[in-house]
Design a binder for these strands. Structure first.
Lengths: 210, 210
DNA sequence: AAATGTGAAGTTGTTCACAGCT
DNA sequence: AGCTGTGAACAACTTCACATTT
């Protein structure tokens, strides 16, 4: 099936493409130029047939009898995911977790930049020095609109999560990484990815005790 | 299908049970005593048939024509998930993120307690005061064994993630919540849940730009 | 009348088996 | 010979349709 002339790729496949990309990066760092689907799949923790099916959604890049060129495959996946250009992101809610996420240096390397954070108390005393500006929540709409920000990280308390999301969407945000433990109501064309640490732990606990 | 006399419940269902549990908690806080599958499903962001199928895996608790008793259903789900008793958890890697997770007060309320943290530099100057003891990584094996800890949160740098996991497993840990952006190799009976923030963002960015 | 519980149908995602290149 | 690419088989999950109960 197609959409905009492109195949519709399952969400899970997109997820795995991100994983492949990171495995390929490590191979490249180690100076490995070519890799088989078998070897890459093993590194990513999946079956080789699945890897090949995943790639088949958007092209055929391998050489039969040989495998895949590491650099070339990296580029193709990167292009497909749209990771090529740096994406601006805002963070809303600078509490414990929000502050840690701001300090987390892992995003830029992956093509994302948190360009600003917002909080109801932007001037609250914080023990850590942060590179990004922390602004008042009321400045958010203008800022988001002006910088054409399409993605936001939400780390506000549950009580204000829904209203905050409403404001973000109104200002033009289309994708939300939500850390608040609540199911957010959003329009169909807005995407929410939830990260709920308590649920992840609960999940583990269920499966390890059989 | 059954395992140990209990039905095998799909992983996705277990995930949703956790969500239902949180929705029920909110209903109870609001003094609501009874809820229909339709209403609860809506709050959880799923279809009502799915909710009913999910519950059917481990029992039948509703009253036809009426719905579910909020308290009773909470208890049943809680019992099924094994959330009833408090679970001890350790955290390994007290960097930016690890520190934030230690400060995060959301776990106890959900039945988990981080009883200790470990780091290669336990005495490193940290600007935040933490309730839990921060111990040297070398003390980890004895501590984990002694306290019968079965779950760990891993927030160490990628470079030492695999060896740290090996040590945790050797000491008896069966479930790992992994924040390091790497695919960990573990025995079949050990479960890993990955939380990769960069991948979540990448995923959002793909779907919002169509 | 209203809402649950569930077999059957439908959909999606995974794995197999092997044809087809290099 | 070795490895990719892919239709077909399979498995898992979701939704439908409706019988059943209060």
């Amino acid at each position: 099936m197609k959409r905009n002339g492109r195949p519709i790729i399952p969400k899970k496949t997109i997820y795995r493409l991100s994983i492949y990309l990171r495995c390929l990066a490590r191979l490249r760092e180690n100076g490995i130029g070519t890799v088989s689907s078998e070897a890459l799949a093993k590194a990513a923790g999946v079956k080789s047939t699945q890897l090949r099916k995943d790639l088949a959604y958007f092209g055929t890049f391998g050489t039969r009898g040989l495998g895949y060129d590491v650099s070339e495959l990296s580029q193709k996946i990167s292009g497909e995911l749209g990771t090529a250009q740096l994406q601006p992101v805002v963070l809303v809610g600078v509490g414990h977790l929000g502050l840690a996420l701001l300090s987390y240096r892992g995003f830029e390397k992956e093509g994302f930049e948190i360009i600003a954070a917002f909080d109801t108390e932007p001037n609250r005393k914080r023990e850590k020095k942060i590179a990004q500006p922390i602004l008042g929540i009321r400045e958010m709409p203008a800022f988001v609109a002006e910088h054409a920000v399409k993605m936001a990280i939400l780390s506000v308390p549950v009580a204000v999560a829904q209203e905050t999301v409403n404001a973000l969407i109104k200002s033009g945000v289309m994708g939300i990484l939500n850390f608040a433990p609540i199911v957010l109501a959003v329009p169909e064309d807005v995407m929410v990815n939830n990260v709920n640490l308590a649920i992840e732990l609960e999940n583990l606990s269920y499966f390890i005790q059989g």
